Computed example of a mutant assay.
Amino acid sequence: MWVWVMGVALLGWLGLWLGRGGFWRADQVLPPPSEPLTDCPGVAVLIPARNEANALPQTLPSLLQQQYGGAWEIWLIDDQSEDGTGAVAAQIAQALGGTERLHILTGRALPAGWSGKLWALEQGWQAVQAQAQTPDKFKYLLLTDADICHAPDSLAQLVTQAERQGLGLVSWMVRLRCESVWDCLLIPAFVFFFQKLYPFPWVNDPTKRTAAAAGGCILLAQTVLEQLGGFGSLQGALIDDCTLAQRVKGLGVPIWLGLTSSTFSVRPYGTLASTWGMVSRTAFTQLHYSPWLLLGTVLGMGLMYLFPPLGLGWGLVRGIPWLVAVTGLTWGLMGALYRPTLRWYNLPTVWGLTLPLAAGLYTLMTLDSAWQHWRGRGSAWKGRVYPKGS
């Protein structure tokens, strides 16, 4: 049994090393523009915000003070917050002299079949269209979460990439907070698993079908959104960022997804429970609610991540040199592929040994997501529970 299991696991890691687009290199990064754009198109920034009064003092100034050569305005959609989100945003804009640039919308009640974020974005987009004096005033929309703090040149980098590469969508997986022990265990692993599931080099290759985006920061061409039929075309999608990217690439429009360290999330996770809630909310949705895909995921994660350390322990206890060698090589290769992501988060290589533990916890989160779905609890987020099957 050990010969068969460890042989498959080793071949699997060799396949990830040599295939999957070299996802593990974590090298899809936007370079600083060599030359600024001579004609910067207008950008409308849409921020869906629900109970974000604590985050906005850190994040909203970064958008109000962008170093961008074109016109940009911000629409913050206060999605029925209970903590004074809209008032806090207004105070920040007034203090920075940005009241003319910031528009605060009071979100309407959530209609049936919509997720809160998509409904907020749809309302923001309607407001942009109503207020724009000319149809081409805002060529792009920047969709960004209220907890994202942007680098001063964030907008310039995203637009430059879109303009010079002819892209309809440019997205950054921003740097997530990684401070506590739980963060160090789970956050880099989350980024690693996301890159493995959606290899960024394949996403960025127009000849590949793979498509994904990171919802915290997406630059989207308005004409592309119009082709899709607005955010209503994504209605009911809980994994709205990747769904959007798949629809855009399905139109034959090239997209780009990469990493950034200068634009980051201020949202604190810090505990196992907070990360667990984030992942279990949509993990089973990612598997299309299929029990067979769930079974395959559990078996695959166990084979690839858990058996190597277990086999190494068994080989040491029973004194089986070949088993120690094969499992040690497999675990070492696993850590080597994980190292670039760890380096991105300024963590030492030794943290690579914890990837099997992180994989085990993420497998349990996925099982919990399926359990909640089968109990009819749907997906909960920001005080809302979305019905089963949404």
Rank of each mutant, 00 (worst) to 15 (best):
Y338R: 13
A283K: 02
V191S: 13
L30E: 12
Q222H: 07
H103I: 11
K196D: 12
D27F: 08
L102K: 00
L234H: 05
L56H: 02
Q65R: 14
S261V: 06
P41N: 10
A380Y: 00
L10C: 14
M173L: 05
R177H: 03
L186N: 12
A89H: 04
T223L: 10
W182S: 15
E100T: 02
T59C: 06
L294C: 03
L293C: 01
G69K: 12
Q58E: 09
A55N: 14
A213P: 00
V324K: 13
L158T: 08
D241H: 01
T330L: 12
A127I: 09
L306V: 09
L185Q: 02
A358F: 10
T341H: 13
S274Q: 14
E179W: 02
G270V: 10
A189L: 06
L37P: 10
L142Y: 06
G168C: 03
D27E: 13
M334V: 08
L257Y: 00
Y289R: 11
P32L: 07
T99S: 15
W24N: 11
G319I: 04
T271R: 10
G296S: 00
T85S: 07
F190R: 12
A87R: 14
A109L: 06
E100N: 06
W114K: 04
Q131A: 15
G86W: 06
A71M: 05
C184N: 07
T341K: 08
R175W: 06
G383Q: 13
L10T: 14
P291M: 02
S280C: 08
H288R: 15
I255E: 00
G376I: 09
L102E: 00
E82I: 00
L251W: 13
E82D: 08
V191E: 12
A358I: 11
V8W: 15
Q133S: 08
A237W: 01
P291G: 06
V8T: 12
P348T: 08
G302I: 02
I104K: 07
L355V: 05
W24Q: 07
G216T: 13
W351E: 06
G12W: 15
D39M: 03
P199F: 01
G311C: 14
D136V: 02
Q235P: 05
H150E: 09
P32V: 06
N54A: 15
L259D: 05
G84A: 04
L169A: 01
V8S: 11
T297V: 02
L219W: 03
W351F: 14
Y289W: 14
R247P: 05
G378Q: 10
G42S: 06
A93G: 01
L228G: 08
T38K: 15
R108K: 12
V191Y: 09
W322I: 13
L186K: 08
E226D: 15
T134R: 14
L293H: 09
Y198H: 00
G232T: 08
Q157D: 10
G86C: 08
V181H: 12
F190Q: 11
L238H: 09
P309R: 12
Q66W: 04
D368R: 07
S171V: 00
W114T: 01
R281F: 04
L121S: 02
V266E: 07
V350E: 14
F264R: 15
V324P: 07
A93Q: 01
D145N: 15
G232V: 00
T134N: 07
P152C: 03
G168E: 02
W331Y: 04
L257H: 02
